[in-house]
Structures are given as structure tokens and as C-alpha cells.
């Protein structure tokens, strides 16, 4: 088990990667990626612990992760590279022509760690549900994890999947909503108020857990609780409160950083706020 300090160090390096990747590419989505970094690092390093050298598309006998809000691809690529799926140097190719690190996740050229394309929103929960059903059919007791965005819940297909997974008792699945409250057009509550999200999810038959996603001890505790509630007839969904842009003061809680890369000065300022703990790519 890694110390909280070590997990924080990895998350900080991942944040540096996100700033540098989006800055070098001149495009991308730094805000949500920064906010969910603590969670995704903790999930891979403390919970899933997959074998990065033994990646298979089927993911048999290992926990698997899907990213529905594919625009935070810089985060996922950085975590995959830092975890050992591919060399960190490849992070420098993000969004460039010919790169395996497409703007949004894809399986082209077989980038290890990724099993389905995402980016067009609202589909990941259904895909993860299908993969969880396959694990059940295969008597594979490993888990399926999914992260999706809060604004993404405006896509109706999510509610089809929420209905299905509880009706079919898909209780080997943990969905984590990155609830940063921001989307492209502004705060989620102004664009499309989600209302009492917890009550809605409970009404759809899911076990709901609330977590603060920018606090590693809380992530450790609540994810353990989530896992402990599996295999009891209900899928588990985590409402993970995060701050868009967490770690970079001028990006914090600002929807303008959803899909805009930092310029030279902004990147410099941002990197000054993030320790280089593991060495830049």
C-alpha cells in the first residue's frame, strides 16, 4: 500500500503532465482532468492494481476501468503512462497527428489500457454495464469501474443504463460521477439543474455514496466502502465532489478551463504551483 503522501506526489506529477500536454498540444481539456487526478491515481494504484504489461482487451481476471467523459483524456493517458502501460515520453505526442493519444480516447493502434472509444457523451455507463455482465457470465469476480461527468448526466442514455443496471442487479459495477459542477456553457446548475441527484440515483435503485474527490484519505475510505457494498444486489454509484482545475489556483472552479489549454505564461504559472515529484516526460 502506498502512503497518502506518495499518492499525492503521483497526482501532482499527473497534474504537471496534464498542464504540459495540453499546453504543448495547444488544445485539450485541462480543467476536469486536473480535478479528477487524485481519484484516478488512487483508483489505479490502490484499488485496481492491474498488470500494465499484461493488458488484454477482454480484461479477464482483472479489474477494468472505463472513462465516459473522454475529454479528460490527458488525465487518463498520464495515469496509464505513469502506471507503466506505455512510456511517459509518448505523452508528448498528445493530440498530434499519428499519435496513439488521440484527442479523445480510442483503441486505434492498440493503446494499452483503453478498451473502447469515448468522447461522444452518455455511453460509458452502458458499456461498463455490458462489461460487468460479461464478468458475471464468465464467473470473474473482478470489478468494473467507470468515471462519468456530471454535465454528462444530461444525456438520456445514462438514465436508460441506470434503470437497466439496477433491474438486472449488476452489482459488480462502481460508477463514479465527477461532480465538479461545471460544464462548457457554465455551472451545471444553470445549464441544466440536476436537482436532488442523490435522491434520483437512489430512486433508480443504486447504492449511493458521496465522496470528496480532492482528498486522498476520503477517496481511500469511500472507495473501500463502495467495494464493500458490491455483490449485494445493487450497483454502486459515487457522487464525487471535485474542483475543476484543482491544484492550479487560477483554474479553480472555473468552467472556462473546461476545454481551453494554458498559453505559455499560464502554463509557467501553473507549473510553478505543482511540484515535479517524479520527473517530467
Amino acid at each position: 500500500m502506498l502512503s497518502v503522501k506518495k499518492l499525492q506526489d503521483i497526482s501532482n506529477q499527473v497534474r504537471r503532465d496534464i498542464i504540459r500536454m495540453t499546453h504543448m498540444a495547444g488544445s485539450g481539456h485541462p480543467g476536469g482532468a486536473l480535478g479528477a487526478a487524485d481519484f484516478l491515481v488512487t483508483l489505479y494504484y490502490e484499488f485496481m492494481k492491474p498488470d500494465p504489461n499484461g493488458f488484454t482487451m477482454d480484461g479477464t481476471e482483472e479489474d477494468i476501468f472505463f472513462l465516459s467523459n473522454g475529454h479528460v483524456s490527458a488525465l487518463w493517458y498520464s495515469v496509464l503512462a505513469r502506471y507503466g502501460y506505455f512510456g511517459i515520453k509518448e505523452l508528448g505526442t498528445f493530440r498530434r497527428m499519428g499519435s496513439r493519444l488521440q484527442g479523445h480516447p480510442s483503441i486505434i493502434d492498440g493503446l494499452p489500457g483503453i478498451r473502447v472509444a469515448s468522447g461522444s457523451l452518455g455511453m460509458g455507463l452502458s458499456v461498463a454495464t455490458g462489461a460487468a455482465l460479461a464478468k458475471k457470465l464468465n464467473n470473474d469476480n473482478h470489478l468494473v469501474y467507470l468515471m462519468l461527468g456530471d454535465g454528462e448526466l444530461e444525456e438520456g442514455q445514462n438514465w436508460e443504463a441506470l434503470m437497466f443496471a439496477s433491474a438486472w442487479k449488476v452489482d459488480n459495477l462502481i460508477a463514479v460521477i465527477d461532480y465538479n459542477g461545471q460544464q462548457i456553457d457554465g455551472p451545471v446548475e444553470k445549464v441544466m439543474d440536476l436537482g436532488n441527484l442523490r435522491a434520483k440515483l437512489e430512486a433508480f435503485g443504486w447504492h449511493v455514496i458521496e465522496m470528496y474527490g480532492n482528498d486522498i484519505p476520503d477517496i481511500l475510505e469511500k472507495m473501500k466502502e463502495s467495494i464493500a457494498n458490491l455483490h449485494k444486489g445493487k450497483p454502486v454509484i459515487v457522487i464525487m465532489t471535485t474542483h475543476m482545475g484543482f491544484g492550479v489556483k487560477f483554474m479553480l472552479d472555473n468552467h472556462k478551463w473546461h476545454g481551453v489549454p494554458p498559453n505559455d505564461d499560464e502554463a509557467k504559472q501553473a507549473l510553478a504551483q505543482l511540484d515535479e515529484t517524479l520527473g517530467d516526460f
Partner: peptide, 18 residues
Amino acid sequence: GIAEANMICIAAGLTIGG
């Protein structure tokens, strides 16, 4: 149920697992 979008993506997920 009457939820074709969900069906298509669940089908995609089921292939992951063979």
C-alpha cells in the same frame, strides 16, 4: 426494454469479456 442506445453500448461492453 425500449432503450436501444443502451442496448447497443451494453452489447459493445459484452464483447469486452469475449
